[in-house]
Amino acid sequence: MATYQLTVNGQHKQVDVDPSTPLLWVLREELKMTGTKYGCGISVCGACTVHVDGVATRSCVVPISLLSDRPIVTIEGIGSDPVGRVVQDSWVDKDVVQCGYCQSGQIMNAVALLKANPKPTNVDIEESMGGNLCRCATYVRIREAIKRASQQLK
């Protein structure tokens, strides 16, 4: 066990956990922030995507001990970000979700995409979103929602 200081959605947090504990489980079980989802545990599905220092990151494979003091933003906090809010609204407007379990990760990844590239093409979307799995296969609407958000962000 070791003590770690974190900044999550702008708030300071302290946890006592085993150094090998992935950020995902620190968020979910220590900080009770369950919006970030466990899907695969090996960084192939993207359900656990959060922003670490602004970069879309698979939290299921980041041990807490390697995080240092980089700030974390999760789905619970992304609505305070202007791009995040537009993306969430676009998701609702386009009625994207079905079971919804992967959508935290999809949204976090889409926000990172639009911040880096406010006018993504179809190919850009496929490349950036290409590692986020959705078993309900809401992909057609995810694409539409990203395009809507892109327009709104003009």
């Binding site: 922030m33 970030t36 969430q88 609702v92 979700v97 919804g100």
Partner: peptide
Amino acid sequence: DSRAKCDG
């Protein structure tokens, strides 16, 4: 259930 599934 859209909003709740989009904000975690």
